[in-house]
Design a protein around this nucleic acid. Structure first.
Lengths: 238, 238
DNA sequence: CGTATGATTGAGCCTACTCAACTATTGTGG
DNA sequence: CCACAATAGTTGAGTAGGCTCAATCATACG
């Protein structure tokens, strides 16, 4: 996580030490494992060391909504900071490793490291902007644009921690998961992928996705990369 | 705003003074006025003194998505904290009054008032949880549940600052606005309201909404009140 | 090699959309 | 105060796109 935060601001030794405390505990996850469920008592946040995970909620009609996909360097559980119970479920997609830390450790950061606090605040704000983008795409766009938005979002996210990645990446989600993330059935996801491949927008090779026509993909879902830059101009001095 | 924050934690005189600084500038708004547009340079956040407003974005196909409705005591612009440009548009629904304050004033709070910082952080986290609820309802539920969710959300929000309100409130949004907020057309909103009225779930009198069968409304959209309580247990001492 | 999971494809249906006409309400200027 | 315009809401008819159901094909794994 420190590596990811360094991307945005310089971090002093003292700050580094405070952040290190958040990653002192480790917990490995196996593919498909349920880490916590909505309604569980919520004392911890999690930093992702590696692996893919997602949060989801069940819908009253039996459906399922995949809220957000997480990768190495992400912090899981910010929205739940406001409540003493979890609001969503967390599931590991692949093998991975998490660092749980109690909410209460944040108080030290808030008290002693105003720059880190501001940065975390900003990251939370960005999460909200990303969620609005998701709402835009998943509730109001045609299937092709929804898929495009999901793929571009994952790609932009993965590029931060893996800059020489190119336009190709492994996608460990099945089509039902994808459908639950963008509000389609697995059937429609399948048909949509086929159409996009036929159009020359993407390719699928060995369970990896290749984004062939990035420009057209970005155009059709009005994509904004929320990861590239953040406004740190208002931050206090350290 | 101070009145609203007091709801959750005690506020010392020093903290009160810092917060007061955020509300020293005022700006009145007229009904239908556009306050800012997505892409505008973003230096200010806004505290709502009174009036109704909403943020929205335009969709690539010409549609519109109403993201969030704001009332007295709300802070507008948290998600934009992460960027130097606005990510959405803001429009006033009714006459009202806003207190704009520069982002840079937050740095003083982050440095000097850790409890207030923690509280603002928590409010941002709650906004995210609310947005997930919106995503759930607006992208995946039947029209009736979507309307129910919107009405209950507004009602829960208005109750905080107006505790003896009962189950009746004025709704200054037209059916096109409502549709844009929950992913329906004005036509479907009209039909849905009629059905819900016929079923005895709600009533409409003089442009006001009366929630007749609260339990059934809550049941059918799986409603959670995110405003009632917040977890402040992890906050630092002041 | 057999089983389980995941992906593809086809047929038919259903729901919210579009288009359009009409009614109701609100606001404004003469 | 009335006439007119503009905005908002209602209702009907027909359409279309994504869903459901179901069968088949592909791949991975023990």
């Amino acid at each position: 996580m420190v590596a990811k935060l360094k991307h945005y601001i310089d971090i002093t030794d003292a700050e580094h030490k405070l952040l290190g405390a958040l990653e002192k505990t480790e917990r490995s996850t196996s593919a498909g494992e349920e880490i916590f469920a909505g309604g569980d008592v919520n004392k911890n946040l999690f930093v992702v060391k590696y692996g893919w995970l997602y949060t989801y909620t069940n819908l009253p009609d039996g459906g399922r909504l995949v809220v957000r996909v997480y990768h190495a360097g992400d912090i899981i559980g910010m929205p739940a900071l406001a409540f003493d119970h979890h609001t969503v479920n967390l599931r590991a997609v692949t093998k991975g490793c998490l660092c749980p830390f109690p909410k209460s450790e944040l108080d030290v950061i808030v008290k002693r490291a105003p720059r880190i606090t501001a940065l975390l605040f900003t990251i939370a704000a960005r999460e909200e902007a990303i969620l609005v983008d998701t709402l835009r795409a998943a509730s109001r766009m045609r299937p092709e644009s929804r898929v495009a938005h999901l793929l571009l979002g994952l790609h932009a996210r993965l590029k931060i921690t893996n800059s020489q990645m190119g336009n190709r990446f492994r996608l460990p989600l099945n089509q039902t998961d994808i459908g639950d993330a963008i509000g389609l059935t697995n059937v429609t996801v399948s048909r949509t992928f086929s159409i996009m491949e036929k159009k020359g927008l993407i390719e699928r090779v060995d369970g990896e996705i290749i984004l062939i026509d990035l420009c057209e993909l970005e155009r059709q879902c009005d994509f904004q990369d929320r990861h590239a830059a953040m406004d740190t101009s208002w931050f206090p001095s350290s």
